[in-house]
Design a protein around this nucleic acid. Structure first.
Length: 499
RNA sequence: CGGGGUGUAGCGCAGUCUGGUAGCGCACCUGCUUCGGGAGCAGGGGGUCGUAGGUUCAAAUCCUGCCACCCCGACCA
């Protein structure tokens, strides 16, 4: 009965637990290139499910997909001042287009061919605003061309010094929407709409309740006039920025000189937004729902929603065929009803070993099908989230599985919401904030007089940052004093440690 | 780039102090018995010990250089 878990308990070392879950659930693996990870099939399938669902939501809100190049002329990055400051320090640069072989025998190797140096270096996109706005300049002439509502699914590269699988990697997958509008009002409405798309998407697919709000100036996207964010709480009470939507004003339109002619014949710069979510969402999933046994997946994103484990006794050969036929019939019916079902009929593993494996991998619902169940016309079930095993009648198993999975999703969402609310505190003084944060972590909603230097000082002292000025809370600032400076409060700010 | 640490089989490690012909656990392969919560037994495959040089009859082990990675700081979705 030796334990083979290989997963460090959360209480012992949360960071190690996170890495252990990823390894044991076979979501990702480290590649030979520092900071780059391989998305293994089980991890990529989660991304696939997220992508399919979000893509539908983007199209339902009027967006279309396109694809822009990976390589961007280096000079493009310097066209928007804020933007260059934000990204220049983490760009991969391509300087040559050919290698040559040098040395012989043991010292044989390749090196960039000095004769093949590019006249202008290329950067690997850290984000695509510059390339896209260059192209929009060619496509937009008239008010009749607006709005432009384009999204792309792509990889981007940001050369980070400190990396962590899914949360921060040198290369990651995401979608980035880039829109162009005739008016400020329309662009702001678009940025707000997309934030809401992300918020509901996160609840429906990830069972993650999100706090929505506006970023402080310090945390704002490089080149944006306003950044909206969705923030989630992880199990260690740290915050994770899970998606952003930016109102870019006319910054990029001016930098790339993108104007349109109005109905009255005037030339105006267009108004812009950009917004994105990435494979970081998978990190959020893991850290919000999983436990010391391994991954826990909400049914909508689970690559396998139901695993069926047939059980038989070999001596009694008659058992096996009956059980397998019965199990296969359940699998076929559930698949026909639209569920993602896997039957694990491997002969060399005992049932217990299979249970542990599928629990590590986060399968929401397990069915154990043996001779006893065949007799009863039932399926013996266990939920990944715990509780006693229970029987489902096979006669209406499609409906009952749907109900069980729906309940599980709602429970996950509700538990996450309760945990977040229990760990969110309102304080009035900086001393109370420091004491409480050090003691029990969590989110802190405080009256705040917006001040970048004060924000930096607080980060320096406590490592907490402003996650956002939450929507729906701003009225509370009225008539109050900043918890740090004592000046009149201009906002309600949500402070927390963050990834 | 500063301080600390580690490189030995796919993974995790012992062996290094005190030099003597490569070892353990898991994983993998074969066979038999097992199978309702991580099976047992038997047999088997796999490593130029990070790398380059030096000392020695003999180097994973001692010496020197280099490289890589990890942790703590500085930078960050």
């Amino acid at each position: 009965m030796a334990t083979q878990s290989g997963i460090t308990p959360r209480s012992e070392d949360y960071s190690q637990w996170y890495l252990d879950v990823i390894r044991e659930a076979t979501l990702a693996d480290y590649s030979p290139v520092k900071g780059s990870m391989v998305l293994r099939p089980h991890g990529f399938a989660i991304w696939d499910n997220l992508k399919t669902d979000l893509d539908r939501r983007l199209k339902e809100t009027g967006h279309v997909n396109a694809y822009f190049p990976l390589f961007i002329p280096m000079s493009f990055l310097s066209k928007e001042a804020q933007h260059v400051e934000g990204f220049a320090k983490e760009c991969a640069v391509v300087t040559h287009h050919r290698l040559r072989a040098v040395g012989e025998g043991d010292s044989a190797r390749v090196e960039p061919d000095p004769e093949a140096e590019l006249a202008e270096p290329l950067i690997v996109r850290p984000t695509s605003e510059t390339m896209i706005w260059h192209m929009y300049g060619k496509w937009i002439d008239s008010y009749r061309d607006l709005p432009v509502l384009i999204n792309q699914w792509a990889n981007v590269v940001r050369w980070e010094l400190k990396t962590r699988p899914f949360l921060r990697t040198a290369e990651f997958l995401w979608q980035e929407g880039h829109t162009a509008h005739a008016t400020r009002h329309e662009a702001v409405a678009e940025a707000e709409q997309m934030l809401e798309v992300y918020r509901s998407f996160a609840e429906d697919m990830l069972a993650l309740p999100m706090i929505t709000g506006v970023k402080s100036e310090n945390e704002r996207f490089a080149g944006a006039e306003e950044t909206y964010t969705i923030e989630a709480m992880m199990q260690n009470t740290w915050a994770l920025q899970s998606g952003t939507s930016h109102f870019l004003g006319q910054n990029f339109a001016k930098a790339f000189d993108v104007t349109y002619q109005t109905e009255e014949g005037h030339h105006e710069h267009v108004w812009a937004t950009s917004w994105g979510v990435s494979t970081r969402l998978i990190g959020a999933l893991i850290m919000a729902h999983s436990d010391d046994t391994g991954l826990v997946l909400p049914p909508p994103v689970a690559p396998i929603q139901v695993v069926v484990i047939p059980i038989w006794r070999k001596k009694d050969g008659s058992d096996k065929q009956v059980v397998v036929d019965y199990a296969q019939d359940i699998v076929d019916r559930l698949r026909a009803a639209g569920f993602r079902v896997h039957i694990d009929a491997r002969e060399k593993l005992k049932p217990g070993a299979k249970y542990y494996e599928w629990e590590r991998k986060g399968v929401p619902l397990r069915m154990e099908i043996g001779p006893r169940d065949v007799e009863k016309g039932a399926a013996f079930c266990k939920l990944r989230t715990g509780g006693d095993k229970f029987n489902l009648d096979v006669r209406d198993i499609e409906e009952s599985v749907a109900q069980v999975l729906k309940n599980m999703h709602e429970t996950l969402l509700e538990n996450a919401r309760t945990f977040r609310d229990e760990n969110t505190h309102e304080v009035d003084s900086y001393d109370a904030f420091k004491t409480s944060l050090a003691d029990k972590g969590g989110f802190y909603l405080v009256p705040w007089n917006a001040d970048n230097d004060a924000e930096d000082a607080i980060k320096e002292e406590t490592k907490a940052t402003i996650r956002c000025y939450p929507f729906g809370e701003q009225h509370k600032a009225e008539g109050r004093s900043c918890f740090y400076s004592g000046k009149p409060a201009t906002h309600m700010a949500l402070f927390a440690r963050a990834y």
